[in-house]
Amino acid sequence: MDNLGIDPRELESAFSLFTEASNQLSLAYADLQQQVVSLTDQLEIANGNLRRELDEKAALSRRLSLLLQRLPGGVVELNEHGVVVEFNPAAGLMMKSLCLGAVWQQYITEHLQASNGPDLWLSQTENGERRISIMVNDMPNEHGKIMLIHDVSDMWELQRALTQHKRLAAMGEMTAGLAHQLRTPLATALLYSAHLAKPELSDQDRQKFGQKNLARLRHLEVLIQNMLSFVRGQDVPLESVNLLGLLNEAQQMMLPQLSSHQISCVLNVSSGADTLAVSANRKELLGCVTNLLDNAMLASKKGDIIQLSLTLNEGMAEVNVEDQGCGMSVEVQERLFEPFFTTKKDGTGLGLAIVSNLLTRLGGEIGVNSNLGAGSSFTIRLPVLYCPTKV
């Protein structure tokens, strides 16, 4: 050993260091093995939890899919381009020829027709014509839309029957009022006719009584027509009606009468309201507006200004007719929309009742705000036309 020049103490020291390093490596390896076991256990637990979550989500997906298939209401999903990407069997039954990949705008144009009331549409099905309700909802965090379809044909028929029964009940209550309304102009017409039968009557007086008699008979005709309109309440075809165009037409129709009374009518349209449209029968809705304008004119005096306004408020189109006339008491306002209630000498008392009934059928309403000596303000509120071609 001396010949090799190695100090035994150095060799012993090196061996000790090697032994210590070997022990440290053994300990590190054992610790590493323990960590591997722990991580393996944690991974197995995580995988188990993940498998359970996947199984639960798969089960939920199956249940939702089954629920979607069994739902009596229709569900249609549109992508961001307005293309049908999914629909359930109920939607297919309620909307004939609906298919995946169909462009909703084109489908609406070809297969659906606007019905009476907001969001109601006529659809041709295997069981004939049905009324369906279409509600559109945005999908959270998505660009598409979900459309909920309900067949409301039976409910609509029940509501129609109930409305008719209410009208008949109201008609029974109005019989006494109707008799009075008819008796007065009829008695006057008979009196004028009796004068016409006198042989000694001059031609001038005969012409005067003849004109008065004709006026009374025409008043009777208007009263009977209004009564029939109120009682029948028949459905008429609805269409998309641009309110600005309708108000312009009403203003022009009333212009000759307003000018003769030296009364002005100013049309005010709020920002963005010029394109507002509602689902209504144009002729009937025009009659409502001209009725309010005529009432405002009769309540106004020479030099007054009638304000005709169009605004959009909380998804409802509002048409307001405001005058500077004599106003009304609270008692009059409470009875204003009752059939045969009138404050006019020659009024039938049915004009505002017909207006109120019509607006109710269209899903709208009419309100009044008035103070004696401070004028009156009538407001028509109608739901803005839902247009599924824009989804």
Rank of each mutant, 00 (worst) to 15 (best):
S202P: 02
S356A: 13
G315Y: 01
T188N: 12
L191T: 05
W156E: 06
Q204Y: 15
V83K: 10
T163R: 02
L11Y: 02
L350Y: 01
L186K: 00
A280Q: 05
G351I: 11
M254F: 01
Q251I: 07
S329K: 11
Y29T: 13
H261L: 15
P388G: 08
L238P: 01
G92Y: 02
R52A: 12
E20N: 07
L11N: 03
I146G: 08
S279E: 08
G325A: 09
C387N: 14
T379W: 03
S115W: 00
P339K: 05
L196M: 15
L68Y: 04
P383N: 00
N47M: 13
K212G: 13
Y386N: 10
G373W: 07
Q69W: 06
E86A: 10
N242Y: 10
D138A: 14
Q35T: 04
L298K: 12
A176Y: 10
D151N: 02
L178E: 05
C326Y: 05
C99P: 00
V236E: 08
S22D: 10
L255Y: 10
I306V: 00
P185C: 08
Y29N: 15
P89G: 04
E110M: 10
N226T: 01
D304V: 00
A58M: 11
Q211H: 11
D2H: 11
V103P: 07
T275V: 07
Q34F: 15
V37T: 13
D154N: 11
S13I: 13
D203Q: 06
H143A: 15
A179E: 11
S123L: 08
A250V: 04
Q42F: 11
A114T: 05
R216I: 02
Q106P: 01
R130I: 07
G82D: 03
H165N: 08
G101T: 00
A14G: 00
G73I: 01
M95A: 13
L336P: 01
D55K: 14
N88Q: 09
A46V: 11
D203N: 11
L43K: 14
E200L: 11
D2E: 15
T342Y: 06
N226Y: 05
G92F: 06
S202G: 12
S271I: 07
L11V: 03
G364D: 01
S300Q: 09
L258R: 00
L98Y: 06
V321G: 00
M139D: 02
L276C: 10
D31S: 14
S202R: 09
G128D: 02
D154Q: 09
A250C: 14
M253P: 04
S16E: 09
A277W: 01
R206V: 04
Y29R: 14
G375V: 00
L247R: 03
G92P: 02
D274I: 08
G363T: 00
C326S: 12
G303D: 01
